[in-house]
Amino acid sequence: MRYLKKITGLSSLFLFIITVSIAFVILFTPLYYFSVWLHELPAQLNMSFQALIDNYHILLRYLHFPWVTELNMPDFPSSESGLFHFWEVKLLFYLNYAVLIISLIGSFFYARALKKNRRIWTLQKPFFIASLVPPLLLMFLAINFDRMFLLFHEIFFNNDDWLFNPATDPIILA
């Protein structure tokens, strides 16, 4: 039983760290602002910076809020398959947030039990091993981003709706 609690607790901690990291990246809008500036998207798309950001915020509202049920970006028309893909992305966001909340609860109780029993030190080895994952992942991304991007989409989507055509889904250019 102690081993099962340890595995469940560590799993909760790792899931929490992963999902909170994903949520941070999703919600960290300055990252997109920087990308727009770095890649000179306003000039490439013949749009103002503000128009790009306004459309981006419309997309984020759609992806994050259950009461926003339609995606209608004023400067980016979307095909049916593009809209379906964004709906699937919305579901993945909700799944991430659900796992984040559940793992937060599990992590809280596990960390509290470790602290109470003065066993926080037992996290040292698992966290050291886990700390090796981000550099390895970044290395694979740096070596072959396109393959990692394709692999991600092959794992999480069971269709080809994520293969946007710039003529029907110009959002892919932004």
Results as ranks from 00 to 15, higher is better:
47 M>N: 05
55 N>Q: 06
46 N>K: 15
111 A>Y: 05
64 H>G: 07
62 Y>Q: 05
3 Y>E: 12
73 M>L: 11
37 W>P: 04
68 V>N: 10
120 I>W: 12
125 K>G: 08
106 G>Y: 05
73 M>R: 05
20 V>M: 10
141 L>Q: 11
53 I>T: 03
108 F>V: 06
110 Y>P: 02
167 A>N: 07
159 N>Q: 07
147 R>M: 11
161 D>E: 11
74 P>A: 05
14 F>Q: 05
122 T>A: 09
47 M>C: 12
2 R>M: 12
134 P>S: 03
169 D>K: 02
151 L>Y: 09
54 D>E: 13
67 W>I: 10
19 T>V: 05
169 D>N: 12
99 V>R: 00
114 L>G: 08
46 N>T: 09
146 D>R: 10
84 F>M: 12
52 L>K: 01
78 S>Q: 14
135 P>G: 00
96 N>C: 13
160 D>Y: 04
68 V>C: 10
83 L>M: 10
30 P>S: 02
65 F>I: 11
9 G>S: 08
128 F>L: 15
25 V>Q: 12
101 I>W: 09
67 W>T: 12
127 F>V: 15
121 W>N: 10
129 I>P: 04
103 S>W: 00
33 Y>G: 04
29 T>A: 12
75 D>K: 06
132 L>H: 02
98 A>D: 03
125 K>T: 13
34 F>D: 06
48 S>E: 09
8 T>G: 10
48 S>D: 08
146 D>L: 04
71 L>H: 11
147 R>N: 11
66 P>H: 06
148 M>V: 11
80 E>F: 10
130 A>K: 04
76 F>M: 06
12 S>A: 15
161 D>F: 13
134 P>Q: 00
29 T>M: 02
108 F>S: 09
156 F>E: 07
160 D>S: 14
103 S>E: 03
166 P>I: 03
123 L>K: 02
152 F>H: 10
69 T>H: 13
137 L>H: 01
50 Q>I: 04
39 H>Y: 11
166 P>D: 10
11 S>N: 13
125 K>H: 08
134 P>Y: 00
154 E>S: 13
90 K>S: 09
112 R>S: 13
142 A>W: 02
134 P>M: 00
33 Y>F: 05
